[in-house]
Amino acid sequence: MASVRKSRSESLFIRYLILGAWALFCLAPVLWFLSVGLRPRVEIITPRPIYWPTFSLDAWHMIWEDWPMAKYLRNSVLAILGSVLIDLVLAIPAAYSLSRYTYRGRDDIGFYILSTRMMAPAIVAIPIFFLFRNMGLLDTIWALMIIYAAVNLSIVTWIIRSYMLDIPKELEDAARTDGASDMRILWEIIIPAVLPGIITAAVIAMIFAINEFLFTLLIASTPDAYTMSVALANFTGGSDGVIYNAIALVAFLAFVPVFLVVVAIQKHLSRGLTMGAVKG
């Protein structure tokens, strides 16, 4: 009995050790960024190791005062929220149709939607540039909204679809005999029932949009439409050289809101990422 208890506490200790090491491994870059971001620039580029770092808000002041960071942040937020909204408006009816109706070519359409995600973005970069230029949308957040929405639409549709497949058919039959039309069934029964799925899909789309770089760089040619991700790249050029502490601080600030959202919905998130792999 005693030996059993001992081995159990031992295995618990080992488990925590492994998890702790893993957590440290994951957190180290984040903490490193924070530490770099809150030190004076001279201290980061010195070749000698520093054991007692100096705390400094130089980078903080720099990003807000010397750089239009508030504008970049606003661009990011507007483009991302707008794109997620477009995705939801398009994906929810599409997912409902794919999960509930039987019609010719349904599976092919579903696969086509998913396949748009399989292509390397660089392949369509040039055509998209000309497309947006001809529409006069270059350098606007409208273009970013549309492009982020297009990139994420497939994944959002498929996540919501997998949640919809889990809703018992009986529920819709009941609503139909109760006198509800298709739109009311979607609005009053289906959407509330798949709300966790919709939130998960929205967050995943948000994360992808925050990280989007290639199309943003292509479309945003002046700071008017810069987002955080492209603005970050601009800290590297120019006569000032690479401004490491500002880069680190902006990267950290971009990371925090996403991190908080993910923590808040992590229970749903793992379910959304398996996308009905177990059932459906």
Partner: peptide
Amino acid sequence: DARDRDVAMVFQGYALYPN
């Protein structure tokens, strides 16, 4: 259409609206 027929149905799995 089902919604215009004045019948009420009770299902095996109850089919109550969960939300």
